[in-house]
Amino acid sequence: MKTALITSTGSVATDITIKSLRRMGFKIVGCNIYPKEWIVESCEVDVFYKVPPVADQENYLTTIHEICEKEEIDYVLPMIDYEIDLLNVNREWFEERDITLCISPKEALDIIRNKKILADFIEKECPGTQSIPTEMLRDIKELEWDFPVVCKPYNGRSSQGLRYIYNKEEWDEFVLTADKEVYIVEPFIEGPLVMVEIVRQDDPHKVVAMTRRELISTPHGCSTTVHVYKDEELEENSKILADKLNVLGDVNFEYILDKNGTYHFVECNPRFSAGCEFSCMAGYDYVENHMKCFMNKEIEDCHFKHNMIIARKYEEYITATDIDVEYGNTCH
């Protein structure tokens, strides 16, 4: 039996990841910064560990190494971008022990995790994909777009640090206070978010793409209701982009669909997206096929069935009884 480590068990995609790994016969180890009883999925793995936050890089890596050695981990599935960032530049320890990090190659991630570099890459390499003009705040002498404009960290996730600037007064204040080495600026494009879930492998070469439009979403970008449909041109261009980037396994491309029907590329999530389970429910197990990419097994073909609306609900679980909890602030 192979053993997989799922990091950040509180990630929205953890539920479908556990379900798929169970079907594949994996022993599942999970970890999180919160106590086991605080996260339902932490209670559903075979073995759970509480770990330091990834921001505490040295202690986080040490703890992950200890878990890998104690539990004889074969595959590591990082669930959030900041974990991927850290593991991406610390691959050697895992490679020396034949532990597979289930993430794209370093060269791909170095492009993907910098929104400015990625926008420039798409403009140069993928003429079929419409990127959004993107400038580093430090390079802007005079704003060339009308308000509102979008400002966000070049390496951000889950809308953290996202700002909409609506007038010159707000812009002047933002320029004075924001970190010019971190923030990028883009014109605002109105329209719904559209996701293309991708799985790609090199040998044999295959790329699978499925499209969904977000109908209802939380402020932090977690969709609760989506419309799954087929757009052959968008999916073909997304496959080309996946090939150019040389991604491996599952990634998620995010677009804005404007009122004229043009898709504008926003960013790439180099992991299971929060809406990954929607695509799985639509007929293609992205988690299983992601794993096949790292197990030297051929991924399955995807046969689109029909358009559908899929919605998720929240469900409550009792994870512990007769237990005391220390005083502390609410976690967000």
Rank of each mutant, 00 (worst) to 15 (best):
K2W: 12
L5T: 09
V12C: 06
A13P: 02
M24W: 07
G25S: 12
F26M: 06
I33V: 14
I33G: 10
S42D: 07
E44G: 11
V45S: 13
F48T: 02
P52I: 09
V54L: 11
Y60R: 07
T63M: 08
E69M: 11
E72F: 10
E72D: 12
I73Y: 06
I73D: 06
Y75V: 15
E83K: 07
L86D: 03
L87R: 07
N88V: 02
N90T: 00
R91Y: 02
R97W: 03
I99H: 03
L109I: 07
N114C: 08
A119G: 01
E123L: 07
K124V: 06
P127E: 05
G128T: 15
I140Y: 10
E142W: 12
E142P: 08
L143E: 07
D146C: 05
D146K: 12
P148M: 05
P148T: 02
K152Y: 04
P153A: 08
G156N: 03
R157N: 15
Q160C: 11
G161M: 04
L162E: 04
K168N: 10
K168E: 12
E170L: 14
E173L: 11
E197R: 03
V199Y: 06
R200C: 02
K206P: 05
M210G: 10
I216V: 12
S217I: 13
C222T: 11
C222I: 12
T224Q: 15
Y229N: 06
K230E: 05
E232S: 03
K239W: 01
L241R: 01
K244W: 02
N246V: 13
N246H: 14
L248P: 11
G249I: 11
I256W: 10
I256G: 10
I256M: 05
G261Q: 06
T262G: 06
H264T: 02
R271T: 01
R271E: 01
F272P: 01
A274L: 05
G275C: 03
G275V: 00
C276T: 07
C280N: 13
A282P: 13
D285H: 03
Y286C: 14
M291L: 14
M295P: 09
I299F: 02
C302I: 04
R312Y: 04
Y314D: 13
E315L: 04
Y317C: 09
T319I: 15
A320P: 00
D324P: 05
E326P: 04
Y327P: 08
G328H: 15
G328W: 15
G328P: 10
T330L: 13
T330G: 07
H332Q: 12
